[in-house]
């Protein structure tokens, strides 16, 4: 693993305490070129994590706080008529919205109306924005880290499944452990710490890491395992519908990125198993209304690794 990557993880771990796994997962998500959805209760460090990610990865980042009166133009940008100084003439000039950034922090995405949500989600998928008939490409790279409250909280618009699919991973942070909480209480303000973070990765390094994700080798056996998982989600009773081919690709890409972050150049079944909850749980809907296992838990228990 590159030294820069180790540094980045270390820095992040200093800000978000006791969440090594989730931090590795979110870094893998960004290395895999995917968007990240962090779902948790307010005050669990979602926003801190996303800010820290932007700072450490050296990305130009913007933040949008989603509210119920947010309009698509607030995200995408708007053309405003400007008068030429000294003349009576003028023209429309496009003022790019916050979406024109390398890392977009979409806070509490499920507080906005579906109309505004879909404006962002379209940008995520197309990596370009069309405003007033003109298509504008978004900067490279373009990541969205969105946070959302659990949907059963009041005043939220749950994202439909088709749009959840745009996020490569969905993770949640959870309460910190006792010792981590003590360190948090004794330590500095997290906001200040984020401001003091130095970027440890250059744009080129990030680009190179992303390319190395694609080079992580996947053997026949591990691809067989992945396909067994996909087949299981499609044909076994219990899910409304199985994973799409895009879902399958996402699973492979995320696993590769995890393997890279874990310091390997080849893929193991363990990589798939580790990223599985983050990648598939928001894509699969239990027909029977859940039960003891999450969708990924059922897969992990049922699909054989060795055949």
């Amino acid at each position: 693993m590159s030294r820069a990557l180790t540094d980045a993880l270390q820095q992040l771990n200093q800000v978000i305490l006791g969440k090594e796994e989730q931090i590795k997962m979110s870094v893998s998500c960004l290395l895999a070129g995917g968007h990240l959805l962090i779902e948790d209760l307010p005050g669990m460090g979602k926003t801190t994590l996303s800010h820290a990610l932007g700072a450490v990865l050296g990305l130009k980042y913007n933040r949008i706080q989603f509210t119920s009166d947010l309009l698509p133009a607030d995200i995408l940008g708007v053309s405003i008529f400007e008068k030429e100084p000294g003349t009576d003439l003028g023209r429309f000039r496009f003022h790019p919205g916050p979406v024109f950034s390398q890392l977009l922090l979409a806070d509490e995405i499920n507080r906005a109306t579906p109309k505004s949500q879909s404006a962002l989600l379209e940008a995520m998928e197309e990596r370009q924005v069309t405003v007033e008939g003109e298509t504008r490409a978004l900067p490279e790279p373009f990541f969205v880290v969105a946070t959302q409250n659990p949907v059963n909280q009041s005043g939220t618009f749950p994202l439909p499944e088709s749009q959840l699919d745009r996020f490569l991973m969905r993770i949640s942070l959870g309460y910190p452990s006792e010792s981590a909480e003590r360190a948090l209480l004794e330590g500095k303000s997290r906001r200040d710490m984020v401001d003091q973070l130095d970027p440890v990765l250059s744009f080129e390094e990030l680009k190179a890491l992303q390319q190395r994700v694609d080079q992580v080798s996947a053997s026949r056996s591990v691809l067989d395992y992945l396909q067994r998982i996909i087949a299981f989600t499609r044909y076994e009773a219990g899910y409304h519908y199985g994973l799409s081919p895009r879902g399958a690709q996402a699973l492979l890409r995320a696993s590769r990125a995890w393997a890279l972050v874990d310091g390997r150049e080849h893929l193991l079944p363990e990589d798939i198993q580790t990223v599985l909850p983050s990648v598939v749980d928001h894509r699969l809907v239990d027909a029977a209304g859940g039960g003891a296992h999450t969708p990924s838990g059922r897969i992990l228990n049922t699909v054989p690794v060795l055949v």
């Binding site: 193991l268 228990n301 699909v303």
Partner: peptide, 9 residues
């Protein structure tokens, strides 16, 4: 034992 066990686990 579960079918989902990897050999290493």
């Amino acid at each position: 034992q579960s079918p989902g066990d990897t050999s290493r686990n």
